[in-house]
């Protein structure tokens, strides 16, 4: 089980990656400063950092959505500069197309890549089943709740079994209860699929709970301040983990960095 899972995840290499934005006022903004990072196959990496530190920029670069200013990104040792088929993205908003049914939304990447849609239909239904949305295939997004919609967006990102799943604050818009459920579901889905995940979040707690590794970014220019390995057994249970001293130790360690940088003011 673990062996097959390890095969599916992609290996990510980032070296000396920088990103400079040119604003309309002709300013140059250094959003990412010389980032070096290797992500192992099948690992779950969370990125936390204050607003505006360049988390989304990092994700957009990996997704091939914006050009990099310098440096290299590789997936399975292959340098990439445009959107790569091995990568699936989940954004903060679900971004479902409201004129398409749930199933047609999930099959959108297949359509765009001009693959045989009929072949993927069963897989799409299966994914829906796995996220607890069996029988919802023919519904329109407007008939679903926020949590359900984000689940559909996750299915859409997973339809092609991507080696790397990029998630940009995917649960930021959800209420606490739904968020908790989604975090648990994501954990079990990930342990089943075994793909590599880069998970961007504001929440220190969800980062520590989910990840094998938490990267803490500093405010502009974005750099990685801390690369923290999270050593807790899996599967992690919600209540138990939240009472675990190790868990709180990790959370405290990250908070301390934010306090040292003046991002969080200690009381």
């Amino acid at each position: 089980m673990n062996m097959t899972a390890q095969h599916k995840g992609a290996e990510i290499g980032i070296s000396q990656l920088s990103k400079v934005y040119h604003t309309r006022e002709d300013e140059d903004i250094l959003a990412l400063d010389n980032i070096d990072l290797t992500i192992e196959r099948g690992s779950f990496v969370a990125v936390v950092g204050p607003s505006g530190c360049g988390k989304s920029t990092l994700l957009s670069l990996l997704a091939g959505l914006i050009p990099r200013s310098s440096g290299e990104i590789s997936i399975d040792r292959e340098t990439i500069s445009k959107p790569h088929p091995k990568i699936g993205v989940v954004f903060q908003q679900d971004l479902l197309l409201y004129w398409r049914t749930v199933i047609d939304n999930i099959l959108l990447p297949i359509e765009i890549k001009k693959l045989d849609i009929a072949k993927y239909r069963d897989h799409a239904e299966e994914l829906l089943e796995q996220v607890g949305l069996g029988g919802m295939a023919k519904k329109f997004p407007s008939e679903l709740s926020g949590g359900m919609r984000q689940r559909v967006a996750i299915c859409r990102a997973l339809i092609q079994e991507p080696g790397l799943l990029l998630m940009d604050e995917p649960f930021g818009a959800l209420d606490a209860l739904t968020r908790e459920q989604m975090i648990m579901d994501l954990q079990s889905m990930w342990s089943r699929l075994g793909n590599t995940v880069l998970f961007i979040t504001h929440g220190i707690d969800e980062a520590v709970f989910l990840a094998d590794r938490v990267l803490v970014m500093s405010p502009r220019p974005g750099k990685i301040d801390l690369d923290l390995k999270i050593d807790m057994p899996r599967p992690r249970k919600w209540a138990e983990t939240h009472e675990d001293a190790t868990y709180h130790g990790y959370v405290r360690e990250i908070r301390k960095i934010f306090e040292a940088k003046g991002i969080l003011v200690a009381h």
């Binding site: 997704a63 959505l65 959107p83 088929p85 954004f91 971004l95 959108l108 765009i112 890549k113």
Partner: peptide
């Protein structure tokens, strides 16, 4: 919504596909 364009771009859509799909 510009994010919708990012979405289909991340799937590898060309501008023609972006136009007709979104």
């Amino acid at each position: 919504d510009r994010n919708l364009v990012s979405l289909v771009r991340s799937m590898g859509a060309s501008e023609i596909q972006t136009f007709f799909k979104v």
